[in-house]
Design a protein around this nucleic acid. Structure first.
Lengths: 189, 189
DNA sequence: ATAAGAATTTGATTTAGATCAAAAAAAGTA
DNA sequence: TACTTTTTTTGATCTAAATCAAATTCTTAT
C-alpha cells in the first residue's frame, strides 16, 4: 500500500533515496475521512500537508457571505492550498472533502524537517511547487481573457470526470461565474 | 555591488553559505539592457533565469493577435515567467524590458547545477517558488470575483509606482480589461 | 521647436453575463 | 414509497464592461 503510493510520487516527480523514503514514511499518517469533512477551516491553524490517495477536495474561502471555490484536487495530487498555513499563518481557506477520501497526512513541522534533512526531499517539494505554479498560470490565463465557454471547455478537457464528481455551483465559482450561467452554457452544447 | 545584491536576496529569503555564494557568483553574469529589449521570445528556447537589480519587465503572450500581459516584475524580483523555459520547453511568452535595466543572468543549466550541488540553494529556490505561488494566488483571487475597481486599487496598493512605470494598456491587460475601461476607472476616482 | 507617432481619454452603442425569481429535477432520508 | 432538502434548469430583466470610433494629450526624434 504505502510502497505503491511512494512509487506513484516518484514516477510523477523524481527519484527519492531509500533513506529519505524511510524517514518520510515514519512521519506520515494515512487517514480516511468522509465526504464533507473539513481538512482546514478559515481562521484556524491547521499545519498539515496532504497527498490524496483516493478522493477529491475543494478549497474555498468566503467573500461577501458567498463561497468562492479556488482549487480542486484529486487522486495523486498534493493539496497546495495548505501551503499557506505551513508558513504558520491562519488558514484563509476551508478545505472540504467532496468524496469519502484516503489521504496521506504530514505535519508542517515534519515537512520542514524532511526538507532540511534530505536534499532530495526538498528537491521533490520544489518540483511539486513548480507544478503548482504551472497550474496556477494556466488558471490565470483562463480567467484573464478567455470566454466562459472556453474556460469551461478547457476545465473539462483537464478533468473529464469533474462534472460527475463536483457540484455545478462549485465549478461555476471556480470558473468565476454564476451557476445559472454555467447551467446555460452546458445546455447550449 | 555583487555583495549587496546577495545581501538583498539573503534578507528577503534565507541565509546562504559562503561556499554556495562563491559558486553562485561564478555562474552569474551581470547584464544591462535598454528599454524594449526582449529577454525571451515566444517560440524560442531561452534558458536563462533573471533577477532584477534595477528596472522593470513585463511578460506577455499573443492571443488572437493581441498582447496579453501576464506578469510584471521590478527591482529585487526574480522573473518567474522564465521558469517555464527552464524545463526545456519553448517559451510561451515574450519578456520585455519596460525600462533600461540591470539584471543578474543565470543559465538554466547552472541553476539546476546549483540546486543539485547545494542544498541551501535549492532551499532558496524553493522559497522563491513559494513566494511566486502566493502572488499567483492573490492574482487569481483578484481576477475571479473582484470588481475591476477593486482589482485596480489592490494593484496600486501593491505597486504604488506602477502607473508611472508601466503603460496603461499593459496594466489593463494584466487586470483582464480593456484600456478604455481602465481609463474610465482612473478618471472616476 | 515642431512634426510624427504613440498613448490616453471620451463618446455612443452593444453584449455577455449577473441578478432576481421560480420551476423542475435529483438526491437523501424516514 | 413518499417526503424533504438540495441541486440544477429556465425565464425575464438589468448592468458592467466590451467594442467601435474619434478626439485629445503626451513622447520622441529631427
Amino acid at each position: 500500500m504505502i510502497e505503491s503510493i511512494f512509487n506513484r510520487i516518484t514516477e510523477e516527480y523524481c527519484e527519492i533515496s531509500p533513506e529519505t523514503i524511510n524517514d518520510w514514511s515514519e512521519k506520515i499518517k494515512i487517514v480516511e475521512y468522509k465526504k464533507k469533512h473539513l481538512l482546514a477551516k478559515e481562521g484556524t491553524y491547521s499545519r498539515k500537508f496532504y497527498f490524496i490517495v483516493k478522493g477529491a477536495i475543494k478549497a474555498y474561502y468566503m467573500l461577501d457571505g458567498k463561497n468562492v471555490t479556488d482549487w480542486f484536487a484529486f487522486e495523486n495530487d498534493f493539496i497546495p492550498s495548505t501551503t499557506n498555513h505551513i508558513i504558520g499563518q491562519k488558514s484563509t481557506h476551508y478545505i472540504e472533502l467532496l468524496e469519502d477520501s484516503i489521504l496521506i497526512e504530514l505535519d508542517a513541522d515534519h515537512l520542514e524537517y524532511l526538507c532540511k534533512k534530505h536534499h532530495d526531499f526538498e528537491h521533490l517539494y520544489r518540483l511539486v511547487l513548480s507544478k503548482t505554479i504551472h497550474q496556477l498560470r494556466e488558471r490565470i490565463a483562463s480567467l484573464q481573457f478567455r470566454t466562459v465557454q472556453q474556460r469551461y471547455t478547457s476545465l473539462i478537457d483537464l478533468h473529464p470526470k469533474i462534472e460527475s464528481r463536483v457540484p455545478l455551483g462549485d465549478i461555476a465559482s471556480f470558473l468565476g461565474i454564476t451557476q445559472e450561467t454555467l447551467s446555460r452554457i452546458r445546455a447550449s452544447r
